[in-house]
Design a protein around this nucleic acid. Structure first.
Lengths: 125, 125
DNA sequence: GTTTATGCAAATTCTTTGCAATACT
DNA sequence: AGTATTGCAAAGAATTTGCATAAAC
């Protein structure tokens, strides 16, 4: 139950992540694949790769999901929590090489964090 | 141009925010108003109150927007950045009385942050 | 009386699901 | 052969838009 197969589609998507330094959303993938791959398939592959920790995911400013095979990450698997930065001009989104504070809260049990910085990136300044 | 009127609908919504200690999403408002107010109207009122800094908004774990008239906030206007906590069991979402780090990044101009902690709240533990 | 708000229907956007056909091991 | 994967169409959920009517100032 649940072996992830290295199909042609999966490899194609992984190549795109290797080529791109930034995070990628589904719409961008559809675009870069010039509609050669079904959108549903893309969603499902990304979900699988996310669960398998090959990629990691986070929500952008408008609730759109972004995926990254982050080069900043020192660990092999992208399980470590780090902030992301999203440019409001061009939409480009990056992983940030920073720690995230996990506070000790007596009255709640914190399991995960998401930190998203937004602003203007180098190219758009 | 752009005077925000204190209509009956606006007052109704503000009363609900005063009664509730937690953040509220549109679906919850529709529920609490037992469909007496149009959903579109709710969206528009929340947007106006957000822009007017009477409320503040943030994205929940599934990209759903939440609004709060946060009682933790020390300032009158909820412009100060603070983290939020969302319970994955019951969905209740709160403002957290914590500072958020705004790093000095030379190659990007950061304008805002969103920090969302998720986990289990006191009631659901 | 002029401007802003509201309600309704419809459109948009992002994402998920069901199911038959296909590819992988 | 047997299981995971894909494509297509359709459904779902959250949010937005256009326009005519109603309410606020």
């Amino acid at each position: 139950m649940g072996v992830i197969r290295k199909t042609k589609s999966v490899n194609t998507i992984l190549e795109i992540f290797d080529k791109n330094e930034h995070a990628i959303s589904v719409v961008e993938l559809v675009d870069q694949l010039s509609h050669a791959m079904n959108k549903t398939t893309i969603y499902r592959i990304l979900e699988r790769l996310d669960q398998d920790a090959v990629l990691h995911s986070f929500l952008g400013k408008n609730g759109v999901k972004w995926y990254a095979k982050c080069n900043n990450c020192t660990s092999d698997h992208h399980h470590d929590v780090h902030p992301h930065f999203q440019c409001v001009q061009c939409g480009k989104t990056d992983c940030m090489d920073m720690d995230v504070r996990m506070p000790n809260t007596p009255n709640r049990q914190i399991e995960s964090v998401q930190v998203l910085y937004t602003g203007t990136c180098e190219d758009c300044m």
